[in-house]
């Protein structure tokens, strides 16, 4: 309990440090944030006026304080390219990315855990070697490349799935939260839901397949560890059917390290989503981040990075807490 409280107290400190580091890294750069805009404006007076408007003429520490103050009130500044508040942009672009990351994680977990269990129970037989080989292959393939290859096979050749986008053209759908699944569920729009599922399948598979390699390896080694424990033997000796021993008794105990890995991998998944989105023209944070970088639109880059890091830190904390509830030994100590 004390551990959890200290973790919760530590959270704001980490968030502050993450925000400050992002701010510093972006400000200590040789480039001028005005570079892109200055190309469009010839008049020096105009440049100076915009500088003042954005607070770029103030000393760094004042900019930093203003930045922290804004952040505390939930404001992340204004995009220099579009003139829109970054928080509004994020509210629009964040749900697709998170949706993609969550579905990918689901796929990675389903494939990784089943392959891991099968591989552990067929240790050193052909099935095990094949599963391990595929796992290494999976975690060696770059996200962007497997994405392109999946598009080629399943969208261009077989035409089973669309090439990109979030939902079919001409499909009626409602946007409330911009989490497309949630919105269609809320409005009872089954055709929209089906179309959204159809569109998310390939990008989620691209990220999920690569991540399942990590999950598979962790599940396998954790299962091997657990399969020799007394409770598994005693479950067997009580005459329980093998599938219940495996998927019930053994797997439940083997899942702890796997869950930790999943929590850590969620950050990688978000990173992967950012890259995979570009291939599938998925309207998420990836495109926004890359455009922000190329246009030196600092507010956007800063806001996106801070948001993802916040999300990642919080997700890890959630996994830690979940872990404590799953393992009674940790709960009591």
């Amino acid at each position: 309990m004390r551990y959890l409280i200290s973790r919760l107290l530590w959270l704001p400190v980490v968030l502050w440090a993450v925000a400050s580091l992002t701010f510093l890294v972006l400000r200590l750069t040789p480039g001028d944030p005005m570079g892109q805009v200055a190309n469009l404006i010839v008049d020096q007076a105009q440049i100076d006026r915009i500088r003042a408007e954005w607070g770029l003429d103030q000393p760094l520490w004042q900019q930093y304080l203003a930045f922290l103050g804004n952040l505390a009130t939930g404001s992340m500044g204004v995009s220099m390219a579009s003139g829109m508040p970054v928080s509004a942009l994020l509210a629009q672009k964040m749900p697709p990315t998170i949706e993609l990351a969550l579905v990918s994680m689901l796929i990675a977990t389903l494939i990784g855990v089943s392959a891991g269990v099968i591989s552990a129970t067929t240790r050193r037989r052909a099935v095990d070697f094949a599963a391990r080989g595929l796992a290494v292959l999976g975690l060696s393939i770059p996200w962007f490349w497997i994405a392109i290859m999946l598009i080629f096979i399943f969208a261009v050749q077989l035409r089973w799935f669309p090439v990109g986008g979030r939902i079919g053209v001409g499909v009626d759908y409602t946007t409330i939260t911009n989490f497309i699944f949630l919105d269609q569920l809320l409005t009872g729009n089954w055709a929209g839901l089906a179309s959204a599922l159809h569109h998310i399948a390939l990008p989620a598979l691209a990220i999920g397949l690569t991540t399942s390699g990590f999950v598979m390896r962790m599940t396998r080694s954790s299962m091997l560890e657990v399969l020799h424990r007394e409770y598994v033997r005693s479950a067997r000796s009580r005459g329980l059917p093998e599938h219940r021993v495996l998927w019930g008794h053994a797997l439940r105990n083997a899942m702890l390290p796997v869950i930790t890995l999943l929590g850590l991998q969620f950050g990688a998944l978000l990173g992967g989503a950012v890259i995979t989105e570009l291939v599938f023209s998925w309207p998420g944070m990836g495109r926004m981040l890359l455009d922000g970088i190329l246009r030196r639109d600092y507010a956007v880059v800063q806001g996106t990075v801070i948001f993802v890091a916040f999300f990642y830190v919080t997700a890890n904390l959630a996994v830690d807490i979940f872990y404590h509830f799953l393992d009674p030994r940790l709960r009591e100590s």
Partner: peptide
């Protein structure tokens, strides 16, 4: 170690992207 913790709070790919964004 606290400094390292903060660096680990960024998904690694994102940290790399952020630094390139800053340096060019």
């Amino acid at each position: 170690m606290r400094l390292i913790d903060v660096m680990l709070s960024f998904p690694a790919v994102l940290l790399a992207i952020l630094i390139v964004a800053a340096l060019g």
